[in-house]
């Protein structure tokens, strides 16, 4: 699967394979809807920051490039925070500082170099794949964790109860770690099969 977009979803999934954007994934995925929301927000900040950085052009030093990218994404993160606070106050309370923290999300920053070396079109296509991959991963982790911790999915009760400790930070680490391992095992097997066919 050479499609960049699909790669962002599976083999190079930012959260489950590349371990980017881990902190928010641990913190907000206690409920699926929070995971989904922050995934969407991160994706938006990522795409906007990449686009603007691309348009602003290359800066001489590597450090300067990163600094510029950080400031751009900080601006968009601030905007996102304002929008969420104004329109979705409960969500804002649930997500807390993790909305503005998308400014320095490792996912967003890892794309800094890529942003400038390509045309805006290519850059956006790339980060869109990753952003959507991240968003899907966040949602999946959220669903699993909510199911295990509260027995519900997106608020709809499915199981009679859950293991509340999964909602704790320790539980978050464990669930994410296990999901990552399982995901890698599955994707790894798929890769092997493809390589065998090729």
């Amino acid at each position: 699967m050479d499609n960049r977009f699909v790669k962002g979803l599976l083999r190079d999934n930012p959260l489950l394979c590349l371990a980017l954007g881990v902190c928010p994934a641990l913190a907000v995925t206690t409920y699926a809807v929070n995971g989904l929301a922050l995934g969407v927000i991160t994706c938006c900040v990522l795409v906007c920051a990449t686009l603007v950085s691309c348009l602003l052009g290359k800066v001489s030093s590597e450090k300067g490039q990163l600094a510029l990218y950080m400031m751009v994404s900080a601006a968009f993160a601030a905007v996102a925070d304002l929008i969420v606070k104004a329109n979705f106050p409960e969500l804002s309370a649930a997500l807390g500082i993790f909305v503005p923290l998308t400014a320095v999300s490792s996912l967003v920053l890892s794309r800094a170099a890529f942003a400038v070396d390509n045309t805006p079109g290519e850059a956006v296509a790339d980060v869109l794949g990753m952003g959507i991959g991240y968003l899907c991963a966040m949602t999946v982790v959220g669903v699993v964790r909510e199911l295990l911790a509260h027995g519900s999915v997106f608020g709809a009760a499915i199981l009679p109860g859950g293991i509340p400790s999964i909602a704790l930070p320790a539980g978050g680490f464990l669930v994410l770690g296990v999901l990552m391992g399982v995901f890698k095992a599955i994707v790894g097997k798929k890769d092997e099969e493809e390589d065998a066919q090729a």
């Binding site: 704790l168 320790a170 464990l174 994410l176 770690g177 990552m180």
Partner: peptide, 12 residues
């Protein structure tokens, strides 16, 4: 990363 996270979880 997976085992690192699991280790972190156990430390947590």
């Amino acid at each position: 990363m997976p085992i690192t996270l699991i280790s972190a979880g156990l430390i947590a």
